[in-house]
Design a protein around this nucleic acid. Structure first.
Lengths: 202, 202
DNA sequence: ACCTGAACACCGTTCAAGT
DNA sequence: ACCTGAACACCGTTCAAGT
C-alpha cells in the first residue's frame, strides 16, 4: 500500500539522520536499513544512491541557508553579511561529517542527486560575494566557485579531529583571505552602481 | 630465506607505488598483494598497516622537503622561502591523492606509522614560518600547526576534481592569508635581529 | 505497487598450516 | 624465518521471488 511506503520513507529518513550523526556521511547503508527494520532493497527503492539519501536529509538546510543569505543581504552591510553567512555554512556542515567530499564531486556532476542543492548554495554565496566585492570589502580575484571550494575546505578541516578545536581560528584565517580590503585600486564607491541581478524578495 | 624477504619488500613497495598513483592512498591492499604476486599475509608482515606502507613510500619525500626548507632558509628571503616551500609541499601531495586525511589523523596520533614524517614536515614549515614572521612578512597569528592544516586543506582541494584546475589560483588565495604583510605594527626591521635557531648547513 | 533477502563481487584483518 | 590463502566479518548493489 501507499501508506506503508510513505511510512517507510519517513522512518528511513529519521534513522538515516541518526546514523549520519553518529558515523558521518560514509555510514553503512546496510546499517541504516537494518536499524530501520527494513529490507535493503527498500532503502534502495526509496533512495537509489547515497547522494539521494543525503540530499533528502540536507535539502531543507540548503534552502534555509539560501534564505538566510537573502535576508542578510537586505539587512546588514555586505562584509558582515558575507561573514555571517560563511559562519553559518561551516556550522551547518559540522552536523554532517564527511559531506564535503561528496559536495565537491556533486557540484560539477549534474547527475548527482546533490547537484541542485550544491548549485543553490553556490548561487547564494555568489550573490553575497558580489555585493561585498562591489562594496570593496572582498577580494576581487575570487568567484563563487572559489568561495564554494573555500567553504568546503574549511568544513573539511573541521571534520579532522586534529583541527576541529581550532575551527574558529582557521575560520578567521580563511575569512581574512576572502575579505581582503584592497588598498586603493577602486577610487570612488563603484562607478557602475546598478548591476543586472534582480533584487526581488527583501 | 632472508634474501627472499628483502626482494618481496622491495617489490611490494614498487607495486604499491604504482597502485597509489592509479587509485590514491585508499587503494585496495588486497590489490597490491595480488599485483605483487604475493600472499596477503606477506603484505601485512612487511607493512602491518596501511600507514606503514604509505610511510615507506613517503618518508624520503618528507625528508627531501625538510632539506629543501633548510636550503631555502639559507639562500633566499623569508617570504620567497616560505612561498616556494609551500608550493613544493602542495605539488608533492598531488602525487599521493587522498593522503591528506591520513596525515591529519597521523599528526596527533603518536602510534601512527606516519606520525614521525608529519612531525618532520610540520617542524620544517614552522621554521620557515617563524623566519617570515620575524621579518614581518607573514601573519603573526598563525602557528606551525595552522600552517600544516592549511597545506593539508590546499592539498585536499587539489584532490577534488572540481577544483584541481584552479589549484594555482587557490594556492595564491591561501598564500595571501598566510603572507599578510601586516600594516605598521612593527615599525623598524625587527628589533631582535638574532633569533636562537641554529643556522647550520648553507 | 511494494517489500524481502539471497546472491555476487568486493573489502580489511587474522591466523593455522605449510616450507 | 618466512609465506600462503582460507576464514571471518563486513561492505555496496542488484534482482528474482514473494505479497
Amino acid at each position: 500500500m501507499r501508506a506503508d511506503a510513505e511510512k517507510n520513507h519517513r522512518h528511513l529518513l529519521a534513522v538515516a539522520s541518526e546514523v549520519v550523526a553518529e558515523r558521518g556521511a560514509d555510514m553503512s547503508l546496510r546499517d541504516v536499513a537494518r536499524r530501520a527494520g527494513v529490507g535493503l532493497g527498500t532503502l534502495y527503492r526509496h533512495f537509489p544512491t547515497r547522494e539521494a539519501l543525503l540530499d533528502a536529509l540536507l535539502r531543507d538546510g540548503f534552502e534555509e541557508l539560501a534564505a538566510y543569505g537573502a535576508e542578510l543581504e537586505g539587512s546588514v552591510p555586505p562584509e558582515e553579511a558575507l561573514t555571517s553567512w560563511l559562519r553559518r555554512c561551516v556550522a551547518g556542515a559540522r552536523e554532517y561529517r564527511g559531506i564535503t567530499t561528496l559536495m565537491m564531486a556533486a557540484i560539477e556532476d549534474p547527475g548527482s542527486a546533490l547537484h541542485a542543492s550544491c548549485v543553490t548554495m553556490r548561487a547564494a554565496g555568489t550573490r553575497l560575494l558580489s555585493s561585498a566585492q562591489a562594496a570593496g570589502v572582498a577580494s576581487s580575484d575570487i568567484d563563487g566557485t572559489d568561495l564554494f571550494a573555500l567553504i568546503a575546505a574549511l568544513a573539511w578541516l573541521n571534520d579532522q579531529p586534529s583541527t576541529s578545536s581550532r575551527a574558529d581560528h582557521l575560520f578567521d584565517v580563511l575569512a581574512s583571505a576572502i575579505l581582503t580590503k584592497r588598498a586603493s585600486n577602486n577610487p570612488s564607491p563603484s562607478p557602475f552602481a546598478d548591476d543586472h541581478s534582480p533584487k526581488s524578495v527583501a
